[in-house]
């Protein structure tokens, strides 16, 4: 086994919809455990113009805080009705949405816990590599102790908080993604 140089990234381009064979933004079925939420928002560029050709991917734990992945060896239960992956292309208004459940908290290290969050990737024409961010929940008290939020300068943290509202009895979190400029979303180097 010798070390190998990584393959560079390239933009997803404007034609990735060819790859989106079927809608993948409904993560929760009637059998899925947990609080139903919708997470939705608009992707904006540096001119505050909507980005109608972005692709957003999400990855999250289930309601018990367990990831469906072999590296998550904890005893918290898997939910047979939940995977935790979603993918959505933005529409002509730059809008994306996912119907999912609120994830449980997951560990940061042996002592500390992370507040519930959804990992997000943004792909688009003009992005030579995807951008990595996280959506936290603005009504979640655990945010105050979240070790990752504490890595972010305080004045920029609000860009990572999805805003709660209730819409016709449904819990909706608004999470706009600003690629550049005023209130630019925090993106991570991973």
């Amino acid at each position: 086994m010798s070390g190998r140089a990584l393959t560079p990234s390239q933009t997803v381009g404007p034609f990735f919809h060819i790859m989106l064979r079927e809608p993948m933004n409904a993560l929760a079925t009637p059998q899925t455990a947990g609080t139903r939420i919708r997470i939705e928002g608009v992707v904006y560029d540096g001119d505050r113009a909507v980005v109608p050709d972005a692709m957003v991917e999400i990855w999250q734990a289930n309601a018990a805080g367990r990831y469906r992945h072999p590296a998550d060896l904890r005893p918290a239960p898997l939910d047979p009705a939940f995977v935790g992956f979603g993918r959505c292309g933005t529409d002509e208004r730059g809008f994306y949405s996912f119907d999912t459940i609120k994830p449980g908290p997951v560990p940061f290290d042996a002592q500390r816990v992370q507040a519930p969050h959804i990992s997000m990737l943004v792909f688009a024409r003009g992005l030579l590599d995807h951008l990595r961010t996280r959506a936290y929940f603005d009504d979640e008290r655990a945010n105050a102790d979240d070790p990752v939020l504490h890595l972010v300068p305080q004045q920029r943290r609000p860009t990572l908080l999805a805003e709660h509202r209730t819409d016709a009895g449904r819990v909706v979190y608004r999470f706009d993604i600003v690629l550049q400029g005023d209130r630019e979303t925090v993106f991570f180097d991973l």
């Binding site: 990855w59 992945h69 990595r132 690629l179 925090v186 993106f187």
Partner: peptide, 28 residues
């Protein structure tokens, strides 16, 4: 297209937590 779509703020280094060392690949 990168001129208006690239972030201007520095990226924040993110440690690889359970959220990053897992991923949808195996389940997909």
């Amino acid at each position: 297209a990168t001129v208006r779509r690239s972030p201007k703020q520095p990226l924040i280094p993110l440690p690889q937590t359970l959220s990053e060392i897992t991923g949808p690949g195996p389940a997909i």
